[in-house]
Nucleic acid binder design. Structure first.
Lengths: 149, 149
DNA sequence: CAAAATAGTGGGTGGTCACCCATGATAGGC
DNA sequence: GCCTATCATGGGTGACCACCCACTATTTTG
């Protein structure tokens, strides 16, 4: 138990510490898998947003994901370079660029989704199906509280 | 609902995504509070380890918290500068440095623990007492699975 | 039509983080 | 006693991240 490697109980006794640690490990694992493809988590988030909501004006994409428009430009640029998304000037307002998922992007998104599901299953392995649903419901409640503050 | 700010459901549908996000927010809030005191999360972790397990040889402290010994040296140096810990050469093995919590350090630790508990209460505000215990039990199970892999 | 606001982009900054190596001091094995 | 391993430490690196500013092109406002 106290094998010189055990984390301090006064930390592990905090739900938020466990939340942090487990969340960080989960994120790290997924980031690791994405890195093998030369991708980062933001790439997945952008593709997911396009998959879920359809084409976006680039600025709206940044707003939705709460990221700096300048950073979004770089991410979209990388995705476009890989052929996962297409950029098109808006005819009505030529300042705007509409970002659309390509077929290749949709395929990539499906693969990344599968990776994410894989990591989730790994991380939640100790839980029964019923417990996973409980955890999900609780986390959703907490998350909802945080984003609507 | 879809107000251009909503996160992609294919992400929020992943428990690990919620885990990541909520964990990151919780960690960020606590880091913010600590930053006002010129401290970082590692400072708290070190103090907590000393509080829970008593004095440590510096190297063991690093091993316990899974941090690079070189980084631990810097953190301990900062804590010693603030008078929160004391460093003493081990008489038996003069290469080793034993780190001990001072009274001031113990006081600081109590304050940081209180901050951490405050953030936990903030983050878990949407949950009932019973739900918090459920969440804690589930997280502990997941965490246990991850660290004993 | 001039002035102000907006979109995308390039470039840079400061901070954290996890490393890794070199060095000097000390201990232990043989 | 000599060689090797271990400890603490200083210094540096590379990745990532969240920002922020300046500039150009374009649209909207008045």
């Amino acid at each position: 138990m106290d094998d010189l490697r055990a984390a301090p109980p006064s930390l592990t006794g905090l739900s938020t510490y466990l939340l942090s640690r487990t969340g960080k490990i989960a994120r790290g694992r997924l980031a690791g898998r994405f890195a093998e493809r030369g991708l980062r988590l933001w790439h997945h988030a952008v593709l997911a947003a396009l998959g879920d909501f359809g084409p976006h004006v680039q600025r709206d994409l940044a707003a939705r994901l709460a990221i700096d428009p300048s950073d979004m430009a770089k991410i979209v640029d990388e995705l476009a370079g890989a052929g996962s998304v297409e950029r098109a000037r808006d005819a009505a307002d030529r300042r705007r660029i509409t970002v659309t998922l390509t077929d290749a992007g949709r395929t990539l998104l499906a693969e990344l989704d599968a990776e994410a599901a894989g990591v989730r299953d790994e991380v939640l392995a100790p839980l029964t199906e019923n417990e996973r649903e409980q955890l999900d419901a609780l986390l959703r409640k907490v998350f909802q509280g945080l984003v609507t503050e």
